[in-house]
Each structure stands twice: as structure tokens, then as C-alpha cells.
Amino acid sequence: MSTSETTPPPKATPPPKATPPEKTEPPAPAFEKSYIDQITNQFTDDVEIGYIKENRTRINVKKEKIADVAKFIKDNTPFDHAESVTGVDFPEDKEIGVIYHLGSYTDSTYSKQVLALATRVPREENPNPGNDSTKLPSLRDMFYSVEFHEREVFEMLGVYFEGHPDNRRLLLPEDWADLPPLRKDFRNKGR
């Protein structure tokens, strides 16, 4: 047991099913729902709920509103840092998804929670990183810790982050002239 935690977070058990035996999903855990509702009540049509599971929640945001939602989360909820930024390539939907995982260090009731903030940007066939339509506003001013993660998403998937102070390559060599590697068009040798 931890040495400095006061009470464990309240766990919600799904209520027993009293409805006819058709498949209904158990209602979402109450604690997680509470802070998700805080966000969805603020931004009603730009935000939709991805899923609410125990300790893990996800909201999908339109890309124009991502900066405002992030600012709202930073100011009003105890989430204070971003743990990681994942970029996913969906070539069939012609979109690239970017998912930010947010965590909380300051509030001990929130220490198990990880909130996934997801957006999508349009994807082009021939990418020109920095100069085409795959652009997102950078969340670095709200969550400082995404600085290197966003640089990695830029070089691996070609998503340009506007407002990022230093948007250049991190892991790839300086003279990389091929497709951004994590796109599905970029095939591994022999696979």
C-alpha cells in the first residue's frame, strides 16, 4: 500500500440487470463518467465519447477544437501532464489519428485514470510534411511534456504541429528523404 494516499478512489459496480434478456451494456463506471461529463457538457457537439472503461476513458475531438478542449482539461480537471502521444495511420478513412494520453500527478484520486484525447487529420497521398493539409495545433503550451512526442509524430507520420517552437526531426537522420516511416504505405523490407 502507498505511504501517502488517503482513500482509494470509489469504484462503481454495474447495477444488476433487471431488463428483459437482450444484450445491454453495463453502464459506465460513475467516477470516470463524472469527469467525462464535465468535458462533454462544455463542448457539446465537437466532442464525442470514445469509450468509458474502468480507469481508461477516451474522447474523440474534431481537429479545430482540440486546442480549446485541451486548455479546458488543463484548467478545470486535475489532469496535468501528457504521458504519450500516439499517431495512427488510417489509409482507408484517409485520415491520420493522433491520440494524447493524459494523466494526473497532483490529485491522488485521479492517479489511476488515463484520459485519451483523440483527433483525426486528413491524409494526403503524397505527403509533403510541413506544407500540406495534415496540420494540427500544438498542445505544447497546455501540456509542456508533449514537445518531443509531437516532434516524433511529425517525423514518423508527417503531421505538422502549428505553434510548436521547434518542429524538426528527432529520431530519424537529417537526410531522410523517404515517406514518413509509420505510414502504412511505407513497407518494411520483405514484408
Binding site: 496535468d80 501532464h81 501528457a82 504521458e83 500527478y105 497532483t106 501540456f143 509542456y144 511534456s145 508533449v146
Partner: peptide, 11 residues
């Protein structure tokens, strides 16, 4: 340390 999102022994 919290703002930079550090973890582990640094935190």
C-alpha cells in the same frame, strides 16, 4: 517535474 511529465526516479 509535474509539468514536464517526468516519471520514475526523476519524479
Amino acid at each position: 517535474a509535474i509539468r514536464l511529465g517526468t516519471t520514475g526516479s526523476v519524479l
